[in-house]
Design a protein around this nucleic acid. Structure first.
Length: 233
DNA sequence: AACCAGGACGTGA
DNA sequence: TCACGTCATGGT
């Protein structure tokens, strides 16, 4: 078994199903997770159930750029108090109200603009699944945000790479600092089965694991997974 | 009180 | 290409 698949097996056995992507309108929760309020649905893979939920995932993907999820939840809750979070109401929502509501999620000027632009794009989709390149061309949506939308919102088996993934793989000796987004993405995709649920769980599991061992420097200092992998070769 | 979150983009060399 | 600055809240 390749190390990439071994890591997944270990993480899943350690932390279990993660219930991503969290939806704040969903009353599920997982108190074992770090710093979580609500919205996770561990072991349930039927999401999104409708177009509004899909849209909420996409908006959340934009809001969580370089930001903690608890702050994103606050932003979405703020929005939810004023408007039902769906494409039409957000498209018609005053930009200043949007900024005021999403303030806790950082960079609110930029993100409010991004959300407006994305919402117009979303409405034009008419239920279709966008290509990755289309998402990247909108502006304000980079590779990770696009992959999050595709993987969790549109159920497309496109692996999500983030800063944590790189940090962990560097520490485990599987890549170097110079590895690009696409290179890391390919490393994952070429070494695990092309399975939607596994893609979804794997990225979520990395975040959960990294929150514990890869937040403060020196990164991955007492990562039990590294100790295990070092002793096994 | 520094440090940094589930990034993206513009700039100048 | 790439290293670096900007964006600009809130928890630990």
């Amino acid at each position: 078994m390749h190390s990439i698949e071994y890591i997944y097996t270990w993480l899943f056995r350690e932390y279990g199903p993660q219930g991503w992507w969290p939806l704040i309108n969903h009353n599920g929760s997982n108190p074992t997770k770090t710093g979580i309020i609500k919205g996770y649905h561990p072991g349930v893979y039927s999401f999104p159930h409708n177009d509004d939920e899909r849209f909420e995932i996409c908006i959340g993907a934009i809001l969580t750029q370089n930001t903690t999820w608890v702050n994103v939840e606050k932003a979405i809750e703020n929005l939810n108090k004023r408007e039902r979070v769906n494409p039409v109401s957000i498209a018609n929502l005053d930009i200043d109200i949007l900024k005021e509501s999403t303030r806790p999620a950082r960079y609110f000027n930029q993100k409010a603009q991004k959300i407006k632009i994305f919402t117009d794009f979303y409405l034009k989709l008419n239920g279709k699944t966008p290509k990755s390149e289309e998402l990247l061309d909108i502006g304000g949506i980079g590779p990770e945000t696009a992959d999050c939308m595709l993987l969790y919102g549109f159920n497309t088996t496109s692996f999500v790479v983030d800063a944590y993934s790189k940090r962990m793989l560097i520490n485990l000796g599987l890549i170097t600092e110079s590895a690009t987004y696409q290179e890391v993405k390919r490393l994952f995709e070429e070494n695990i089965p092309r399975d939607l649920i596994m893609y979804q769980e794997y990225h979520a599991l990395i975040v959960e694991h990294a929150k514990r061992y890869y937040q403060k420097q020196p990164y991955g200092e007492n990562d039990p997974l590294k100790t295990l992998m070092d002793s096994n070769t």
